[in-house]
């Protein structure tokens, strides 16, 4: 069961602005889905290795050889705020810092 606080916390992590109505609905809908998927937690999975890949591939690397880059004008043409050859954004507050 997902309470309102959890919904808001998750929405914050996902940077999703939700309306009051969406917060309500999200809590109900997600809880219903979670109640269903919760059943897998009853399975006995002792000693079962997790599978994050269906393919048995490993050790794929590329040679350290340069390849042509994109034309700056092309990439900036798609930018919402091209500034001085770069991508303009609102300056992050110190609280946003995570680098």
């Amino acid at each position: 069961m997902l309470d309102r606080a959890q919904v808001l916390h998750v929405a914050r992590l996902a940077r999703l602005g939700l309306t009051e109505e969406e917060v309500e609905r999200m809590g109900v809908e997600l809880s219903k889905v979670l109640d269903h998927v919760d059943r897998i937690r009853e399975l006995d999975l002792q000693g079962v290795a997790p599978t994050s890949h269906a393919v048995e591939v490993a050790g794929v690397v590329r040679a350290d050889e340069p390849e042509p880059c994109l034309d700056r004008d092309v990439i900036l043409a798609a930018a919402p705020e091209p500034v001085d050859g770069g991508f303009g954004v609102p300056s992050p507050g110190p609280a946003d810092d995570d680098s």
Binding site: A11, A14, R15, L16, G17, L18, P80, E81, V89, P90, S91, P92, G93, D96
Partner: peptide, 14 residues
């Protein structure tokens, strides 16, 4: 885009 970074993120995605 003319509000805070965080606001831009959440409104754009919303």
């Amino acid at each position: 885009g003319d509000e805070s970074l965080e606001t831009m993120y959440s409104r754009t995605r919303a």
